[in-house]
Simulated scan of single mutants.
Amino acid sequence: MNTVEWSESLLLDFPPMDEVHHTFVDLLALAQTAPDETLPQAWSAVIDHTVRHFGSEDEWMKRTRFAAADNHIMQHKVVLNVMREGLALARAGNMAAVREMAGELAAWFAKHTQTLDAALALHMRSVQSEVPVRRTHRTSAHPASAP
Rank of each mutant, 00 (worst) to 15 (best):
Ala118Ile: 10
Trp6Asn: 06
Pro147Asp: 06
Leu39Cys: 02
Val25Leu: 09
Leu116Pro: 11
Trp108His: 04
Met101Cys: 01
Ile73Glu: 06
His72Ser: 04
Ala67Tyr: 00
Ala119Ile: 02
Phe109His: 08
Ala144Thr: 09
His49Val: 04
Asp13Asn: 14
Arg99Tyr: 13
Ile73Leu: 03
Trp108Cys: 06
Leu12Met: 08
Arg52Thr: 14
Glu5Gln: 10
Asp48Tyr: 08
Ala92Cys: 08
Lys77Glu: 10
Met95Lys: 11
Ala119Thr: 02
Pro15Thr: 01
Ala31Leu: 02
Val25Phe: 01
Ala88Tyr: 12
Thr136Tyr: 12
Asp117Cys: 00
Asp26Glu: 14
Ala102His: 03
Ala67Val: 01
Gly55Lys: 04
Ala110Gly: 05
Glu104Pro: 01
Gly103Trp: 06
Glu100Trp: 05
Asp13Gly: 09
Glu5Arg: 13
Asn2Lys: 11
Ala146Tyr: 08
Lys62Asn: 12
His137Arg: 07
Ala90Met: 11
Trp108Leu: 06
Arg84Glu: 08
Pro147Arg: 09
Glu59Asp: 10
Val46Glu: 07
Glu19Gln: 14
His49Gln: 09
Ile47Glu: 09
Gln32Asn: 05
Ala107Phe: 01
Trp6Arg: 01
Gly93Leu: 12
Arg138Tyr: 12
Ser7Thr: 05
Val20Trp: 00
His137Phe: 10
Ala121Gln: 09
Thr139Cys: 15
Ala68Tyr: 02
Ser140Phe: 01
Val127Lys: 05
Ala42Asp: 08
Trp43Ala: 10
Met124Gln: 10
Met95His: 11
Ser129Ile: 15
Phe14Gln: 07
Gln41Asn: 10
Thr33Ala: 05
His137Val: 12
Glu59Ser: 13
Ile47His: 08
Ala88Gly: 15
Thr113Met: 14
Leu12Ala: 04
Thr38Ile: 02
Glu100Gln: 13
Pro15Tyr: 06
Ile47Lys: 00
Ser44Lys: 11
Glu85Asp: 15
His72Asn: 15
Thr64Glu: 14
Trp6Met: 02
Val131Gly: 13
Asn2Ala: 15
Ala45Met: 00
Phe14Pro: 00
Val25Gln: 08
Thr115Pro: 02
Glu8Phe: 12
Ser126Val: 05
Ala107Pro: 11
Asn94Met: 15
Ala68Pro: 03
Pro132Asn: 10
Ala144Phe: 07
Pro15Val: 03
Asp117Trp: 02
Asn2Trp: 04
Lys111Asp: 15
His49Cys: 03
Leu80Met: 08
Val51Leu: 06
Gln75Ala: 14
Glu100Val: 14
